[in-house]
């Protein structure tokens, strides 16, 4: 075996690399959605926010020459959409699910419309950190060429865990999400908390989008998202509203997503449609195996209703 071919070892390596590369947007969007849902609201519109963030991040990176400014702008664009969602859903009897879906349409529309002139220009991408410097194997070096946002995402998962469970603000957020009456009795500003939580969720979803356009795959196009924003909502339920679980779910999902191409790479060439569906099959299998008859919604915040 020569130095440039590593044979079947490529499989675990591709899954590792895939977990790192593919999962980052899932981490951001799912943790963003988790924060929003912890306040008792659901924002189904993150797919639109993600696209808007991807476009805005790319645009600002291109115009300013600074990809990090692009990431920040993507976050701010997402936050603006989160604010819109939060505000509109504060009107009594407005259905948050329906507003979310409408915002997918609006966000995607704006992103495509404003993004037309951005398809051709090349924006400076986010730099990555060469963590594979110790290895002489180019494949290892490539797999460990990690974008800084990946680490931000991991840190975020733990920070959100600490925030929710160890801080007063976190307690307030959880109380608002679990029982509006209790929150009011305690004098918490329910609406303000929810709007801020939705803005935070939008901010993170926007950043997740900018990862797609500025890092991996790393350019702006209308086919950029393959439903990451919608899937994130499912990942939050899968993670049972726990941020560390959401991180794990995103990593699992990213790694499984790399399975299809990697298997073909090592010569398992049939059934690729089914292998490419591995992330979905695996997630469903784990859910079926790990849940019980008890309650499909047991860990959900009390005020959270998908259906109203």
């Amino acid at each position: 075996m020569d130095a440039t071919s590593i044979g079947w070892l490529a499989l675990p390596l591709a899954i590792l690399g895939g977990a790192i590369r593919v999962s980052t947007p899932f981490i951001f969007v799912s943790i963003g959605e988790l924060i929003t849902e912890k306040s008792g609201r659901i924002n189904l519109g993150l797919e639109g926010t993600l696209m808007l963030g991807a476009m805005a991040g790319y645009a600002i990176s291109y115009l300013s020459g600074s990809p990090w400014l692009g990431v920040l702008s993507a976050g701010l664009a997402g936050m603006a959409f989160g604010f819109l969602h939060g505000l509109l859903c504060s009107v009594k009897r407005v259905n948050d699910t329906a507003i979310g879906i409408s915002l997918i349409v609006l966000g995607t529309g704006l992103a495509f419309f404003l993004g037309k002139p951005l398809i051709e220009p090349k924006a400076p991408p986010l730099p990555s950190i060469a963590l594979g410097f110790w290895s002489s194997v180019p494949q290892v070096r490539a797999a460990l060429d990690v974008n800084a946002l990946f680490f931000v995402g991991i840190a975020l998962a733990f920070a959100v865990y600490v925030f929710l469970n160890r801080t007063g603000c976190g307690l307030m957020l959880r109380t608002v999400g679990d029982s509006e009456d209790a929150a009011r009795a305690l004098g918490f500003p329910v609406l303000r908390v929810r709007i801020i939580a939705t803005m935070a969720g939008g901010f993170l979803a926007g950043i997740g989008g900018s990862f797609l356009s500025l890092s991996y795959p790393g350019s702006w196009s209308e086919g950029l998202s393959s439903g990451q924003g919608i899937m994130a909502v499912a990942l939050v339920i899968f993670a049972r509203w726990r941020s560390i679980n959401a991180l794990g779910a995103s990593l699992l999902f990213g790694g499984a997503g790399a399975l299809g191409p990697a298997l073909q790479g090592i010569g398992v060439t049939g059934y690729y449609y089914l292998f490419n569906a591995a992330p979905y099959i695996l997630t469903l299998a784990i859910m079926v195996a790990s849940t019980s008859r008890a309650a499909p919604f047991a860990d959900a915040p009390g005020e959270l209703k998908l259906h109203r």
Partner: peptide
Amino acid sequence: LPDATMLVFQGLIFVCVLVADAIAQQ
């Protein structure tokens, strides 16, 4: 005009109608 133009209009209509409908219901 790109087809996204209509998506923008659709999104705006949906959002406004949903909110108005909620107020009307109230």
